[in-house]
Design a protein around this nucleic acid. Structure first.
Length: 642
RNA sequence: GCUGGCGUAGCUCAGUCGGCAGAGCGCGGGAUUUGUAAUCCCGUGGUCGCGGGUUCAAGUCCCGCCGCCAGCUCCA
């Protein structure tokens, strides 16, 4: 394999070294006088010390603690876990799938014959892993021919590994890594020895399909997280504990925002008075912003005739996501999974001139979709939800302007809610697509230009668009850092054709318009879930269902409390009064637990001087002030959406 | 839908080996009139998710279903 005598040049920290082609990276580093590295970065690739260097180039040594080093260490931990499983359950009983790294750790997909691995087994597996780490096996790399590799893994009864080998392109090197008597098919990179592994913990067990396909067998996926230092690991575990408290499902219950009732049905949300108050404020704001931007607001029905969904193509392409058909007077109806056909009916109700475009209609449209029971998740993934939907119909010339305006609206609304950490994705033409090249090019350019003009960075999902058009998605993070799609701006070259939508141009002839679907919050439900987690339940003042709670200290202060209460109410705030016979401490505690932004305490002192004592959930005690001063402070915060 | 785990009072949870279904909070009544995160006393509250089975006896063991949780697959 190694062509003797052939030299390659590498550069390390600006220093040039000449070595034989095929010299292991570790040897190369030693030659360059670099010590203590556990691998190198070469271009986009991370290579470990065991890997023979095939080409010259720039090498960046990777040391413990570098971000790339975690990748190497976590990868080795996956192998150590696999070895532990083999030792615990028998080499021939454990069949390995894949064992990659994740953002915080690693997992391995395995099949253990005749055994069910549960979370109770994890401590035992961890113990065995620590033992393997203590044994400090050197981790050796070997390169094999395809035949040798297949023979090796047939002997080990590793059917999934053979499956992988058969998928490796013919020109790629097949490598295995060995530690002790454990051998695994693997590209690497790995630590020099098992003893170098850092702090880890196995966190959960779940099922995962082989190759990610539901027609393939399901393996057991064991997850772990890993860091170099014990302290970092503990901090991460603490973060998960904290995140549990921020879970919108818990907050939704504690703060009395919403309810999902078993008798009503899974994935169907009931908005309780406090949640409904918040939602009303949100919807009012949403409507105002849309009217400002020239949208017309509409309402459309929740069901529509089967033949409408036939024409729209939903029955052909979307039926498995729809609630089943119902029948009435010999006619079929479906509950709507989308609002588009209704909005199109509005567009088509009149002859439209180019002078009427862009035509922008918006609706908080409640749709119902069948989602598999296993995917339902609080407010984030439900079966009935309200999209903040809009459709924009415009001429080809207006596309740039329309998209820019739409993206600007989307991002400025997200910012009003306090989100500035979002990710923007541009999805382009897939292999199978309808529409002309000109349409695709024009719309993809419009999308790209809008993002760039507004000065945002984005990722391109090449070929990730729908068959009927390209799109921009904006995703925001929940408490655990999981991304949820909220905003979407999507071209549609399909429906205008299907519904024969037209406008009359300046040439007095019919033309086909461009149509854009878009949602900004995505759905009120999901957005609320993300918002609750983002703020840990303490919503900004303008969105808080109760903004102020007035707490009289004793019965005799009730009259003055009521006066303060009505002054605040008259000033336009959402106020409550806690007139229970409880101690102040208890009333404060309850207000804190309900995450009420401000409480106003009134007792003898305040009644006498005509003031109030203010305590903010975030700020703590703010001392005494007049109601007018307090109102001015609140107004400022509401206006700035603080 | 799949794999694994879980389901006990309105909420959070305990219930050992199969042997009388519990606590705190809440809620109702009473006492207390209170100054920045829980006042005290008394009372109230159960189809142990649903249905079947084993057993003298099932919250507990077995089977089926429903729901929830984690992940897979899929999506706003």
């Amino acid at each position: 394999m190694r062509a003797m005598g052939e030299k390659i040049r590498v550069f390390i920290d600006g220093k040039a070294v000449e070595v034989d082609r095929g010299t292991p990276v570790g040897e190369v580093l030693k030659r360059a006088g670099v010590e203590g590295a556990i691998g190198v970065r070469m271009g986009g690739e991370i290579l470990d010390l065991q890997t023979p260097l095939r080409e010259g180039g720039e090498l960046k040594p990777v040391f413990e603690g570098d971000p790339e080093s975690l990748e190497i260490m976590r990868h080795s931990l996956a192998h150590i876990m696999a070895q532990a499983l083999k030792e615990l359950y028998g080499t021939e009983k454990v069949h390995l799938g894949v064992g990659p790294t994740t953002e915080e750790g690693f997992y391995y997909d395995v099949e253990v014959e005749g055994q069910r691995i549960t979370e109770e087994d994890l401590p035992r597996i961890e113990e065995k892993m620590r033992e393997i780490i203590r044994r400090d096996y050197p981790i050796l790399r070997k390169e094999l021919s395809r035949e040798e590799a297949i023979r090796l893994f047939e002997g080990l009864k590793e059917r999934y590994k053979i499956d992988i080998i058969n998928r490796i392109p013919p020109d790629e090197v097949i490598s295995v890594y060995q530690q002790g008597d454990f051998v695994d098919l693997c590209k690497g990179p790995h630590l020099p020895s098992t003893g170098r592994a850092g702090a880890f913990k196995l966190t959960s067990v779940s099922g995962a399909y082989w190759l990610g396909r539901s027609d393939q067998p399901q393996l057991t996926r064991i997850y772990g997280i890993a860091f170099w230092r014990e302290e970092e690991l503990r901090e991460r575990l603490r973060f998960y504990e904290e995140a549990k408290k921020r879970d919108h499902r818990k907050l939704g219950k504690d703060l009395e925002f919403f309810l999902i009732d078993d008798d009503v049905g899974p994935g169907l949300v009931i908005w309780l008075p406090r949640g409904a108050t918040y939602r009303r404020i949100l919807e009012d704001y949403w409507k105002e912003e849309h009217i400002k931007r020239g949208y017309q607001l509409v309402y459309t029905p929740h069901v529509g005739r089967s033949k409408l969904w036939e024409r729209s193509g939903h029955l052909e392409y979307y039926r498995e996501n729809m609630f089943p058909e119902m029948e009435m007077e010999g006619e079929g109806y479906f509950v709507k999974p989308m609002n588009c056909p209704f909005h199109i009916a509005i567009y088509k109700s009149k002859v439209r001139s180019y002078r009427d475009l862009p035509f922008k209609i918006a609706e908080l449209g409640t749709v119902y979709r069948y989602e598999m029971s296993g995917v339902l998740h609080g407010l984030m993934r439900v079966r009935g939800f309200t999209q903040d939907d809009a459709h924009i119909i415009c001429t080809p010339d207006q596309v740039d302007e329309v998209i820019k305006d739409t993206l600007d609206l989307a991002l400025s609304m997200l910012k009003d809610f306090g989100f500035d950490d979002f990710r923007i994705y541009l999805s382009t033409r897939p292999e199978y697509a309808i529409g002309t090249d000109d349409q695709w090019e024009r719309s993809q350019n419009a999308l790209r230009k809008a993002i760039e003009d507004l000065g945002y960075s984005y990722e391109v999902d090449e070929g990730g668009g729908a068959f009927y058009g390209p799109k921009i998605d904006v995703k925001i993070k929940d408490a655990l850092g999981r991304l949820w799609q909220c905003s979407t701006i999507q071209f549609d070259f399909n429906l205008p054709e299907r519904f024969d939508m037209t406008y009359i141009g300046p040439d007095n002839r019919k033309h086909r318009p461009y149509m854009i679907h878009r949602a900004i919050l995505g759905s009120i439900e999901r957005f609320t879930g993300v918002l609750l987690e983002h703020y840990g339940g303490l919503l900004p003042l303008w969105l808080s269902p109760t903004q102020v709670r007035v707490l009289p200290i004793a019965d005799r202060h009730l009259e003055y409390a009521k006066k303060v209460f009505s002054e605040l109410e008259r000033a336009g705030f959402r106020v409550e009064i806690d007139d229970r016979e409880e101690r102040l401490g208890a009333k404060i505690r309850d207000a804190e637990l309900m995450k009420i932004p401000y409480v106003v305490v009134v007792g003898d002192k305040e009644a006498e001087s005509g003031t109030i004592s203010v305590r903010g959930k975030k700020e703590g005690s703010l001392g005494s002030m007049t109601v007018d001063e307090f109102v001015a402070m609140l107004r400022k915060k509401v206006e700035s959406r603080e």
